[in-house]
Design a protein around this nucleic acid. Structure first.
Lengths: 230, 230
DNA sequence: CCCGTGTTGGATCGTCGCTCCAAAGACGCT
DNA sequence: AGCGTCTTTGGAGCGACGATCCAACACGGG
């Protein structure tokens, strides 16, 4: 069976350019963006980087470390790009919307955040939220709850996005067709048992995820405003 | 190598009592409750049920089907147990709190919901929310957004709970110790860079997840109430 | 020139979900 | 009772995965 020491001659040549943690993370991001969450396998990485397992594991602890690093990359990018001028309310909308857009563009980030919240990157996000709530005159006593609530909401939307994206990748149908199918399913439900769902079929078909997300943010902001006077 | 037809004599005896989809789902739930999300393997199921793969796959399509069924079980249980008397606001609080408690008791449900939202069981939940918002005089035009926002928030909290639970299972530390550790880490952060996080360390250590969840619900309900007049 | 330190490639392992098929009951019919 | 059909069961085996491990290499300081 020519154990391992049948080396003799033909080892495949080593790479000349050097590997690096950053290169690995960047390549992983490309794979994730291209093929969804479960397209990222160590095997796929070795193929794409034309290397072996050892080389990768030399720069990266394990797969979850890799995923976490890629996720941190995306989030810090969002935070650094978000404008800091305007009213607190505007900044808060821009900040959360920036996160929404980023997760919309990279759905795997949403899935990863659901697995490992409270990454350092999210702590920065949390900090920003807290400060903005301070600027919005939310009393210190309730600021903790309010910030947590907002983060949880954003995270919930992120997870939804990730789930939808996962459901679509590999399918031949696009988002519109999927919504049509779901709307049709909802329309067939018993109107006596599901009056509300039945009534919202139209809005389901032509709603905009982004606008609905913002509507939620606005509801939250309105709710927050009431805390000032308590 | 005695392929497979080395039967001769000693096949293990067949079970006398009959297997059923319900029994499988119930056993899966027990495994999940006892050992967390990734304790549920097909192998563990065969051992616990003293059977083979074939028997299980005869009653269940695949693992995700099994997880989905177990999740539906838990959720429908919550919905059927929730009281329906009181003011719409009270019922809404009880309903969402019921879901919170259920996911708190079975964290794997939160993780599964993050993988497959819009299960039939969640549709019932969505329907209930919608009707309650109707009772709260939320205009039909914005009811869709409001209901979605609430569901997303609840889902976000569910995911958080699941992540926390996953982080704790198998560790020797309990929730209190974990919070202490995190609080200590937060306290060591640069107060200039993280003033908000720094300021909320105390609240982090002795906050109640359940109360914080309810505080969030109240924020959203307050915000939604303001939609009546728009 | 040579050796040690930091990298690289890939054979190999253990585990997972899942497929497949022969054997074993259950059951109706004659 | 004997027979044939259909349902249910058990488990060997497959391919893919994450991860480990180690021999082979590159390269720079002495």
């Amino acid at each position: 069976m020519a154990h391992r020491t049948a080396n003799g001659s033909g080892q495949t040549p080593r790479r000349t350019d050097s590997l690096s943690r950053d290169l690995i993370i960047q390549t992983a991001t490309e794979i994730l963006d291209g093929g969804g969450e479960n397209a990222l396998t160590l095997r796929a990485l070795t193929v794409r980087l034309k290397t072996g397992y050892g080389a990768i594991y030399h720069h990266v602890a394990d797969k979850s470390d890799l995923l976490a690093a890629a996720t941190d990359d995306v989030i810090t990018g969002v935070l650094s790009r978000t404008a800091t001028t305007g009213s607190p309310r505007e900044i808060l909308r821009l900040l959360t919307l920036g996160l929404f857009d980023a997760i919309d563009a990279h759905p795997w980030v949403g899935a990863e955040l659901s697995r490992q919240p409270w990454r350092p990157a999210l702590l920065d996000f949390y900090e920003s939220i807290g400060r903005l709530l301070d600027a919005l005159a939310v009393p210190e006593r309730v600021r903790f709850d309010a910030a947590g609530t907002l983060v949880n909401y954003v995270l919930g939307v992120a997870v939804q996005n990730a789930a939808n994206a996962r459901h679509l990748t590999g399918r031949d149908t696009d988002r519109g067709a999927f919504l049509d199918t779901t709307a049709a399913k909802w329309a067939q439900l018993d109107p006596d048992r599901y009056p509300f769902v039945h009534a919202t079929v139209t809005q389901l078909r032509d709603h905009d995820d982004r606008e609905q997300f913002l509507a939620g943010i606005d509801i939250f902001l309105t709710g927050i405003a009431a805390l000032r006077s308590t």
